[in-house]
């Protein structure tokens, strides 16, 4: 029977979108965070252009507050795919006075990344940035297009988006404007994990159970790092944890988990009762936290 299964159809759609980027833009890039979604993107990009290499650089916006394992993984992956890596540094943006470091207990460099990201896009004159955003992640993201237009200030205008019909993508733009492209828009968290399992995609070790120094803040387990301020009653302890998503260390909530294989993780995700971003401290700041950041030019 000539019929694709759903993951095959999603893969085919994503590869089509990635190839459209190569065809429609002059200076594309792929935003690589070291998280599972961007790792899947790199895997799909490799498939899209095989046997040629991925024809655009990977861009990592480095908050300086990373999980060390993610950086090691990033460097190994760049080597394996013979990819070109560009790093935009939030620390540099702070040193140059482009942004001011947040203070206090919930200080995070997550929001500051937007400035570094937009500066990096401008510096290298990228006209398209492929990202691993998925519509099931968050309510504002449910409104995203595959080809998402950004004005010359990098802003997203969710109320005035171009209609996107069939699989015809309009990447036309003026000088200085750019597009964010989301090839895995239609994938869910479960799709990503099942795909990683099926395709045997390598992941950083922090996705699997490990012992780590952690502390609990308002019900969310956060990784401890020397630069983090603890509140009075918070104490650092060692727990068996893993990451469900990977972002800046200051806002990535960890799951208490003993899952040490993809099968275990899939079982855990299937049984879970909270969304993936439920553990993301950055989204809990307000009901429209993601929408507001995205309008400014966030990932």
């Amino acid at each position: 029977m000539y019929q694709l299964r759903h993951l095959q159809e999603l893969e085919s759609e994503a590869i089509f979108v990635i190839r459209e980027v190569a065809a429609q833009f002059e200076r594309p890039s792929l935003l690589f965070s070291g998280g599972k979604d961007s790792i899947v993107l790199v895997h799909l990009a490799q498939k899209a252009f095989w046997p040629a290499r991925i024809p655009f650089p990977l861009v990592h916006i480095d908050t300086g507050h990373n999980f060390e394992e993610t950086l090691q993984f990033r460097d190994a992956l760049v080597k394996k795919f013979h990819a070109r890596l560009i790093v935009g540094s939030v620390q540099e943006s702070i040193d140059m006075g482009r942004v001011v470091e947040e203070q206090g207990y919930n200080a995070s460099r997550n929001v500051l990344q937007t400035v570094t990201l937009l500066d990096t896009i401008e510096k290298y004159k990228f006209d398209a940035a492929i990202g691993g955003g998925r519509r099931d992640e968050e309510k504002a993201r449910a409104k995203e297009r595959f080809f998402s237009h950004r004005d010359e200030f990098g802003q997203w205008d969710p109320k005035n988006q171009r209609p996107e019909l069939w699989n015809i993508f309009n990447g036309k733009k003026r000088m200085g404007e750019h597009f964010r492209i989301f090839p895995i828009s239609n994938w869910t968290e479960m799709d990503i994990w099942q795909y990683i399992h099926h395709e045997k995609v390598d992941l950083p070790s922090i996705y699997y159970t490990h012992e780590r120094k952690v502390f609990n803040r308002d019900g969310v387990w956060l990784a401890w790092a020397p630069f983090m301020k603890l509140k009075e009653k918070e104490k650092v302890e060692i727990r068996k944890v893993r990451c469900r998503t990977v972002g800046d260390i200051t806002c990535t909530g960890l799951s208490l988990s003993t899952a040490n294989s993809l099968e275990d993780i899939i079982r855990e995700i299937a049984a879970t009762r909270v969304t993936e971003r439920g553990g993301r401290y950055d989204d809990q700041r307000s009901d429209a936290a993601m929408e507001d950041r995205k309008k400014e030019g966030y990932f």
Partner: peptide, 19 residues
Amino acid sequence: KHQDGSGEFSSKVYLEMEL
């Protein structure tokens, strides 16, 4: 989806799902 994660979204079932 949530009562028992082991059976119904096993990888074998998942790879056969249509869209």
